[in-house]
Simulated scan of single mutants.
Amino acid sequence: MGRSQETTGKKEKTKQKIQKRKDKEEKKEMRKANSDKGKSLDDMMAYVDEYGNITDTPPDPKKKKVIKAEDIMLGVPSRDVEEEEAVRNGIITYFNDGKGYGFIKDLKSQESIFVHANELTNGPVKEKDKVTFEVANGKRGLSAVLVKKI
């Protein structure tokens, strides 16, 4: 007599395939039973309240705010820049003669402003010298121009 062509490994694989098919059919039936098809649009609708929370109740039309399109600003709002004095007073807090730059502390605003040796109008300056200057926007921020020693 001949032996069976099916080994135990093959039997196990066929049992697993059959079990997978059954599981797949069961999942398909569960999806059909729990399907949202047939629900009305109102049952599926979600709303966002004024605090950003998702709710199932529609917003109250009495609390509706009317916003004009002209009132909406796109981009960065412009800042109102105060017109400051053209000439400021300050004290040299640091100056390096070798490199040709330093910093001035504005007496009014107490901010530190960069100064280059090319902007000195009446000779070299040292630390703790009082100066008058004007401010201009440089490559990396504010810089002092037309610096005069008092």
Rank of each mutant, 00 (worst) to 15 (best):
A136W: 07
A136S: 14
K99A: 08
K11P: 07
E29H: 13
T14I: 12
K17M: 08
N118L: 02
E50I: 11
R88N: 12
M73S: 13
K148R: 15
E111G: 02
T121S: 14
G90M: 01
E26Q: 10
P58H: 03
E85T: 09
Y47L: 01
V66S: 12
K64C: 11
L74W: 11
D129F: 04
A136G: 00
E82F: 07
Y47V: 12
V66T: 09
N96Q: 10
D43M: 06
K65V: 04
K27I: 08
T93H: 05
D71K: 02
T57I: 13
T7W: 04
T93I: 12
A69G: 06
K20T: 05
L74Q: 10
G2C: 06
E134G: 07
L107K: 05
A117E: 06
G38C: 05
G123Y: 03
K27Y: 06
D49T: 00
Y94H: 09
D60I: 00
G75L: 03
G102W: 02
K10H: 13
K27G: 01
R140K: 15
T55K: 07
D56W: 13
M1H: 11
D36V: 11
S4F: 09
H116D: 11
A86I: 14
E119F: 14
K68N: 15
E111M: 01
E70V: 07
T93W: 00
I113F: 05
M44S: 14
D80Q: 09
V48N: 02
E26L: 08
S112N: 13
G102Q: 02
K39C: 06
V76C: 01
K149H: 08
G38E: 10
K20D: 11
K65F: 14
M30H: 15
V76H: 07
T55N: 03
R88Y: 07
K24S: 08
S35L: 04
A33F: 13
D23K: 12
E29R: 15
G141C: 02
D49Y: 03
I92L: 02
I67T: 14
K27P: 00
A69Y: 14
E82R: 09
I104F: 00
K62Q: 14
K126W: 01
E26K: 09
A136E: 14
V81G: 05
K62D: 15
T8H: 08
G9R: 05
I18K: 11
S78Q: 08
K149P: 15
I91W: 08
I113V: 15
I113G: 03
K68A: 12
D71M: 03
